[in-house]
Design a protein around this nucleic acid. Structure first.
Lengths: 229, 229
DNA sequence: CCATAAAAGTTGTAGGATGATTGGTACATA
DNA sequence: TATGTACCAATCATCCTACAACTTTTATGG
């Protein structure tokens, strides 16, 4: 078997290392990187080489440079940035449809594969949501709600699915926030949570998928009502 | 109205122009770009600036540089390249699961929204597949089969869904090719096609989704059999 | 204390020099 | 002819220095 020779350029080597530092959270989002001079010495490359690596990550959406100020971490994922640019051209509805397709599949798989750990986490989030609901703490309620959906997807065990879903959710965050804040009552949402959790506990794939689908219909109606006005 | 000054860096301006040239196919995939010297003059920037722009697109997967030879266009889509790197870390099964989640949603939406044009196209592909099957032209059969699946997704009308699906399909191309080539008989596949097409014609969303799901099960079984060996 | 100016720190852009790799050409040899 | 070698030209890779532009911090004068 002939293997292709892998001769990585210095720029690519530096970029790769920086990507890892970001992914491993050693360079945290929002944090400033050391100045170019320092990085040059640390990586042992010239300014040009270093700058080309930085520029590559800037273009990919991981970093952001500010002339005169510095370079900071903007995102931890290339896929997220690529999706973001793509999603900008799409409508909210299109994005939601894809997100729900992913969540529905995830719910089915979660019902099949969920571990005790997954269940514990889901239950914790549900009770958290309940508390927030009783306290009328809207922000906390919304945060918990989003966490619940993410937890379902995480229970699917499919990492690609998880990544895509989380990135799309992040992109839709402000929209979902507004939607939930506008809900007249929290009861509906809580009902959904209990139903889905129940189906996942019982490993009932069909029901899990169905409840998620019902949720989608509610959102779709909301959107069409909103666009009519 | 005061407008925020858009001070895009030279590098970003050059990168953006090059992306457009690629997207508009003025620079075609596989083609070599003019050498750096020439591009410097055309864009009116220094070598460093030009190289940073090129490097950004190289990292994004759109270009490829070969020392001593030149720079050539490698892909037309950022999303495709980002997915590709991500998918490398995922298993085939994970990728297929996501792809099917998208296709299932697409089938439902296609059943709802399909136009006469969509139906005509689907029918044409089905008969194309039939001819290939009778002629025992495996390559043509596989091509048609993939076209059929893509056409279903296209009939959904959701551009984000279409893009994601097509990129994932491209990534899985060799796998799908091998799978189909290994199928003992073509009848099964053709049955699926007719069933799905029928459901979409009748605008029966549930059936359309169901038939797609059946297809997924067949593939899953094949994979688990393959991984056991 | 505050406003302003100066200074220092940092990224942006330019231009030049050298090294490394590739592709092609000419030529000698068997 | 076929093959291998040496050489040359084109091209990208890397490094270096210098200066411009912008931001942040510090110093200064009232």
């Amino acid at each position: 078997m002939i293997q292709k020779i892998n001769r990585l350029s210095l720029v690519e080597q530096v970029a790769e290392q920086m990507e890892q530092l970001i992914e491993q959270r050693q360079w945290k989002v929002g944090e400033k990187l050391p100045p170019e001079m320092e990085l040059m010495e640390k990586f042992g490359v010239s300014r040009n080489t270093l700058r080309e690596a930085i520029r590559a990550l800037v273009h990919a959406g991981l970093l952001e440079t500010r002339q005169g100020s510095g370079t900071l971490v903007r995102s931890t994922s290339v896929l997220g940035a690529a999706l973001k640019r793509h999603v900008k051209k799409s409508t909210m509805l299109e994005t939601l449809e894809v997100r729900f397709a992913l969540e529905k599949q995830a719910a089915k798989m979660a019902a099949e594969h969920r571990t005790e750990e997954d269940l514990t986490k889901l239950e914790a989030i549900v009770s958290e949501t309940k508390v927030a609901s009783e306290k009328k703490d809207i922000d906390q309620f919304i945060t918990s709600d989003i966490e619940f959906h993410k937890a379902i997807v995480q229970a699917s065990g499919n990492q690609l699915l998880i990544d895509l879903y989380e990135h799309m959710t992040d992109l839709l965050y402000s929209f979902v926030h507004d939607f939930l804040a506008m809900q007249p009552s929290f009861q509906l949402e809580q009902g959904l949570h209990l139903n889905v959790l129940d189906a996942i506990q019982k490993q009932d794939q069909a029901s899990a998928a169905m409840y998620v689908e019902n949720d989608m219909e509610v959102l779709k109606d909301y959107i069409s009502k909103m666009t009519e006005e």
